[in-house]
Nucleic acid binder design. Structure first.
Length: 580
RNA sequence: CGGGAUGUGGCUCAGCUUGGUAGAGCACUGCGUUCGGGACGCAGGGGUCGGAGGUUCAAAUCCUCUCAUCCCGACCA
């Protein structure tokens, strides 16, 4: 492509709307433009990067035995009512009516549609397993879209679904996809980890997230420094070592009420008593489909709501507003404690080892000092309820955990029979018995993958695209358009790149050299080939790799074989995938 | 939905406190000079100051409402 003919509006200044690096660079490099919050147009340069990621995804999915389909984006409400997600999915589901006042939604995901398709097509175990995928625009009316393509409302997603005869076969499909995903993100040139995750609204019982490590990521992941254990902090466990030494030191017979005016937070209370927050217990009220409950954790820890939800066996969980707690339970938020409450109390496993502790008195303006586990309050539900901290012990080995930030670019789930039972996607097995298919689902955020790649591959001058997803592999810079010799040679070189199938951006604009260098850096083409009058006189072209910030190499004009072998090498590295 | 902030030529922003001729840089058009890391000169085009209402002789500026966008918390590829 000739730069002079391409719609590639690079920006010198950073648009005010962009905060994170990838968003800024994607705007500056003329890849995307915002239409509305979380809704973006893809410009040619950006679309090329997306298509490259899609290409890798398709190649690896097909190699893994999946087949591409394309399902409708607009879906009838009936299907969602059948799966009972019409109500469950909430406001993220964009709903609308057609001219006959029938309810529809714009698909945020396609379990219903694919299951509906399959239930009409598959009758026999002989037709299984089956793995279908698509690459398509999704819409989720996110509460807070942000960071450009990182969390858009409209976004391009690869979603795939597997159908198997039983759980064992489904596990094979899952592992097959896990390997395919590993190849995909490796080929995209990303530094990522596959981590254990919560399965969220999609449901099911087993899932992994593929997380690209980046400080700007929205997710926190805990991983072991020694073994390969890695999990989203939402899900992460740590091995508990109770410290018995503190549990016996009891100096009083019963807790003592102390007036603590205006001490409604742990920090206030810690300052008031001049103790460490770890000596205070944090008591919180949660409401779920099973009613109210109190959750008690050490004052220096954060409650992990997913663990609470799991411990309760609840379908949903939320923190009720203080007014509701006051009205319905007659408890003062800010002065809550586990002693004497009538609702179920869940206690974090560390609490019994805290010895004498301070807790709320359930009376406005008062706390209790010298409260003891066992003597003053008890619960038969003592479990792990807090978020892991860095430095805690790995649940699998004797290593410790570290916390990193990351961007979730892929997520794979074992769904079980959740959808196939609801939608009656059944088949006859070898015994002639009717069974529900066992499903899995597998997503990749295509735009987010591009954003994550930029997040991980940039420097102060711009993007440093990994070779595989770079829209152009090479930037060819003609520094002296007016020099016939130089231009003639550049034109020849340009044609040669095209002949060899190496995608090239030929900067033939009537611009000063500085502009061309700046744009080449910003746009991040992996290889930069420069020819100017000076070089031509000396009989050389200059070649520089963008990513390594390498030295400029000089190749003779009359022998470009070293240049071509450089590309052969880059191409080979790109597609060399480690297979088990 | 809470909390914080911002809306002024295509982009980045000043002007607002203390009401009185809408400004700068970049970008754009023309001409000339430049030409190896975002050049310079001259001459141009382009703005209902997010929108509505109000106060006032007079509103970008003060007041009310509204819309949009961004950032911090619950959702997720």
């Amino acid at each position: 492509m000739r730069f002079s003919k391409m719609h590639l509006p690079t920006l010198k200044e950073v648009p005010a709307e962009a905060e994170v690096v990838s968003h800024r660079l994607m705007l500056r490099a003329g890849m995307i433009r915002r239409l509305a919050a979380g809704i973006y147009s893809y410009l040619p340069f950006g679309l090329m990067a997306l298509r490259n990621v899609e290409g890798i995804v398709r190649h690896e999915m097909n190699r893994a035995g999946a087949q591409e389909v394309l399902l409708p984006a607009v879906q009838p409400a009936e299907l969602w009512q059948e799966s009972e997600r019409w109500d469950f999915y909430g406001k993220e589901l964009l709903r609308f009516k057609d001219r006959h006042q029938r309810n529809f939604c714009f698909g945020p995901t396609h379990e219903e549609v694919i299951t509906d398709l399959i239930r009409h097509e598959i009758r026999s175990y002989r037709q299984l397993p089956l793995n279908l995928y698509q690459v398509q625009t999704k819409f989720r009316d996110e509460i807070r879209p942000r960071f450009g393509l990182m969390r858009g409302r409209e976004f391009i997603m690869k979603d795939g679904y597997s159908f198997d005869v039983d759980d064992a076969a489904s596990t094979l499909s899952y592992q097959n996809m896990r390997e395919a995903y590993t190849r995909i993100f490796t080929r995209c040139g990303l530094n990522f980890r596959a981590v254990e995750a919560d399965s969220g609204a999609i449901g099911g019982n087993f899932s992994h997230e593929f997380v690209v490590l980046a400080d700007s990521g929205e997710d926190a992941i805990a991983s072991c420094t020694k073994c390969d254990y890695a999990a989203n902090v939402e899900k992460a466990q740590s091995r508990f070592v109770g410290d018995e030494t503190t549990s016996s030191a009891v100096s009083t017979d019963s807790p003592e009420a102390v007036a603590t005016p205006n001490c409604e937070s742990i920090d206030d209370v810690a300052a008031f008593f001049k103790v460490d927050p770890a000596a205070i217990i944090k008591s919180m009220i949660f409401e779920s489909d099973l009613g109210f409950c109190m959750v008690v954790v050490p004052g220096d820890r954060e409650v992990n709501e997913l663990k609470v939800k799991a411990a309760l066996g609840a379908n949903w969980l939320e923190v009720p507003p203080p007014a509701r707690i006051a009205d319905e339970l007659d408890l003062p938020v800010g002065y809550l404690g586990p002693i004497g409450v009538e609702i179920p109390v869940l206690v974090d496993r560390q609490v019994p080892y805290m010895g004498e502790m301070i807790c709320g008195a359930n009376r406005h303006g008062y706390h209790l000092r010298g409260a003891c586990w066992g003597r003053d309050f008890k619960s038969d539900r003592v479990v792990d309820l807090v978020q892991v901290h860095a430095g805690e012990f790995c649940p699998r080995c004797d290593g410790s955990l570290q916390i990193d930030r990351g961007i979730e670019v892929g997520h794979i789930f074992k769904l079980g029979t959740k959808y196939s039972e609801k939608l009656k996607a059944t088949f006859l097995d070898q015994d002639g018995k009717e069974k529900a298919m066992v499903m899995g689902c597998y997503g990749i955020g295509v735009g987010r993958t591009v954003a994550a790649a930029i997040e991980q591959n940039h420097d102060e001058n711009g993007i440093t695209f990994p070779y595989a997803i770079a829209p152009f592999k090479v930037a060819l810079l003609n520094l002296d358009l007016k020099s016939e010799d130089v231009t003639l040679f550049c034109e020849k070189l340009y044609q040669e790149f095209l002949n060899r199938g190496i995608s090239v951006l030929y900067d033939d604009r009537n611009e000063r050299p500085g502009v061309k260098f700046k744009d080449a850096d910003l746009l991040g083409m992996p290889v930069r080939v420069t020819l100017g009058r000076k070089g031509f006189k000396r009989g050389i072209i200059e070649v520089k790799l963008r990513q390594a910030d390498a030295e400029v190499q000089e190749f003779p004009l009359d022998n470009l074989e070293p240049l071509w072998s450089l590309f052969t090498e880059l191409q080979a590295n790109d597609s060399r995938i480690t297979l088990k």
